[in-house]
């Protein structure tokens, strides 16, 4: 694999990236997802400036960067929530740039957005049923629901409770169950472990590994950079809406260390919470989930 490190001010380096990508696609086999010079903005505020990268079939790609780098916007462009202003998005060879979100979802991209990403006014069961019925049809939705409840016993206990009344952690769990209930080709997860207790984070990563082993490709946005890099095949580093580095995990590690010193994985270390706490908060309780 060849890494393409274009540096922080990636303006002129984009062409080289595109050329290198062509070569890599051939080497790695067919990319499942490909972004080509994607630009996106929220009204007058521009968020992405010519972002290009690929997710090879069957791989796990980590998307890292500091706050406001455009990670969530990339995830939203992929799932069709935000439409690219320029550039194109390709899923297994067909262009999906202008597809509405529901069509992309039916084509096999599942997106668990960041934050409270459940429908609060629906029950737990209805949240799952909505996706299962729309994506699988009425007959096969029953099995999907049983699968989801089998995997998340906690949700089964609360299946008739309104999703808005679940605790934060349970809502994230439901959000994960929603995208796991229906088998997808590409799973886009955005800050799924944010605000979760360490034990639950382990559970979440376990679930993601199981999905990968089942053959689904993953595009993962995570604050636990070390943990996601440990599981990822490749990584994309975003800086201010531009791709600063892309390549195998080993190749991008130095860039991550330079750009995100407080987030960079310590060789062999596992304690991520210690890395995350800022020195200004010595009183922060160990293992506090919202230490960000």
């Amino acid at each position: 694999m060849s890494a393409v490190v274009t540096g922080i001010d990636a303006g002129p380096g984009i062409d080289a990236t595109a050329v290198a990508q062509g070569a890599r696609s051939l080497a790695d086999g067919r990319p499942l997802l490909e972004l080509r010079r994607v630009e996106a903005s929220y009204g007058p505020y521009r968020a992405l400036f010519g972002v290009s990268f690929t997710v090879p079939e069957g791989s796990v790609v980590a998307l890292v960067g500091s706050n406001g780098a455009g990670k969530s916007t990339v995830a939203r462009v992929v799932s069709g929530l935000v439409r690219a202003k320029a550039g194109s998005v390709w899923l297994a060879g067909s262009e999906i740039t202008r597809w509405p979100a529901w069509r992309i979802a039916r084509a096999g991209i599942a997106h668990a957005p960041e934050g409270r990403s459940v429908l609060a006014s629906l029950t737990v069961e209805e949240n799952l049923e909505l996706a299962a019925r729309a994506l699988l049809g009425r007959r096969r939705s029953k099995g999907a629901l049983d699968r989801a409840f089998g995997a998340f016993g906690r949700l089964a206990e609360r299946r008739h409770q309104l999703a808005g009344t679940l605790s934060g952690g349970e809502q994230r769990m439901l959000s994960l169950a929603k995208v796991l209930a229906v088998p997808a080709r590409l799973l886009v997860v955005d800050e799924l472990s944010l605000g979760l207790a360490p034990a639950v984070v382990d559970e979440v990563f376990g679930a993601l590994r199981a999905v990968r082993d089942a053959g689904t490709s993953l595009l993962v946005v995570e604050q636990h950079v070390d943990r996601v890099l440990a599981m990822a095949d490749r990584a994309v580093v975003l800086v201010r809406g531009r791709v600063a580095a892309e390549g195998s995990v080993a190749e991008v590690l130095p860039v991550v260390a330079r750009l995100l010193p407080q987030r960079a994985p310590v060789a062999g270390a596992a304690s991520s919470s210690a890395q995350h706490r800022s020195p200004q908060q010595p009183g922060g309780r160990p293992g506090r989930p919202d230490a960000e």
């Binding site: 929530l81 979100a101 979802a105 019925r133 729309a134």
Partner: peptide
Amino acid sequence: SGLGLRMRAVVESPRMAELSGVRAD
């Protein structure tokens, strides 16, 4: 038909509904 369920989903968040494959429009 599940129309009622879809309607309730769409009114809360058309985008969340679309992520579940529902045609909000």
